[in-house]
Simulated scan of single mutants.
Amino acid sequence: MLVIPAIDLKEGRCVRLTQGRRSDVKVYDADPVDVAKSFEDAGARMIHVVDLDGAFEGPNSINRKVVRRIIRAVEIPVQFGGGLRSVHDVQQMIEYGAAQVVIGTLAAESPETLELFVQLFGFRIAVGIDARNGQVVTHGWEKEEKISAIELAQRVADAGVDRIVYTDVTRDGTLTGVNVEQTCAIARESGLKVTASGGVSSLDDIRRLKAARSCGIDSVIVGKALYEGRFTLQEALRIA
């Protein structure tokens, strides 16, 4: 079980949202590059970075520059998502050195473009499926789509994607526990490798996910619990 610490960027700063609401934001006064280096020093094997401004409104040059600095500062892979809407966006982040990019809104709205991305970039493309009560939400979790999370998971599998990052947005940033059951359902129905995201609050969540890895969950993104000191990254890595 791979534990992936998260850095969410808003206007170049580390933040965490609650349930994805842009109005419910907490700023952490730490330089994102220093945070990334501390995660690497603690033993992380990958870092997950999100451009929240990009997710809501489109690419943000400040955040993109910060991501580039992070990639240059660490030696471990960086996975990036948020505001990737075109081939140019994806190409730019890969040229910056992102090991993998996570496509969200575009995967739900344009299956043809997703297939093109897979043809062009292969395993460097992962799909972020964000859901509220089982229904896909896009555009920074502000628009509900007519497709269910499981239907989208099956569709992206058909497109040739091999990894899904699944987030239950009702739990994200709430420290109420990860939705293991729904995450397993996404893995089973798609047959893909799945990264769990949203709601991790304690080491017990890491243990529950590890116990459920036979269904296809092989990694978990952890954010607010680390920033709030619920447990350390070293503790999570030892359990995983």
Rank of each mutant, 00 (worst) to 15 (best):
R22W: 15
R22F: 15
R22G: 03
R22C: 05
S23A: 10
S23Y: 06
S23R: 13
D24C: 15
D24Q: 15
V25H: 07
V25S: 04
V25K: 08
K26F: 01
K26C: 09
V27M: 01
V27Y: 06
D29C: 00
D29T: 01
A30E: 12
A30V: 13
A30Q: 13
D31Y: 14
D31S: 05
D31W: 15
P32E: 02
V33F: 05
D34S: 07
V35M: 00
V35C: 00
A36I: 04
A36H: 03
A36M: 05
S38C: 07
F39S: 01
F39W: 11
F39T: 01
E40V: 07
E40W: 14
D41A: 11
A42H: 04
A44Y: 00
A44H: 01
R45P: 03
R45V: 13
M46H: 08
I47H: 03
H48L: 02
H48P: 05
H48C: 05
V50R: 04
V50W: 15
D51N: 08
D51G: 07
D51V: 00
L52H: 08
D53L: 00
D53G: 02
D53M: 01
D53E: 02
D53R: 01
G54E: 01
A55C: 13
F56M: 12
F56Q: 12
F56T: 12
E57A: 10
G58K: 08
G58W: 15
P59Q: 13
P59Y: 15
S61K: 12
S61A: 10
I62R: 15
I62C: 13
I62P: 12
I62H: 15
N63K: 11
N63H: 14
N63W: 15
R64A: 10
R64T: 06
K65I: 08
K65E: 13
K65R: 15
V67T: 11
V67S: 03
R68N: 07
R68D: 06
R68M: 04
R68P: 02
R69Y: 04
R69W: 04
R69K: 11
R69C: 05
R69M: 07
I70D: 01
I70V: 11
I70Y: 14
I70L: 02
I70C: 02
I70N: 03
I71Y: 04
A73Y: 02
V74R: 03
V74N: 05
V74C: 06
E75G: 15
P77M: 09
P77Q: 10
V78E: 00
V78A: 00
Q79H: 11
Q79R: 09
Q79S: 08
G81F: 13
G81V: 14
G82F: 00
G82K: 08
G82D: 06
G83R: 09
G83T: 08
R85Y: 08
R85D: 06
R85P: 03
R85G: 02
S86N: 06
D89I: 00
D89Q: 03
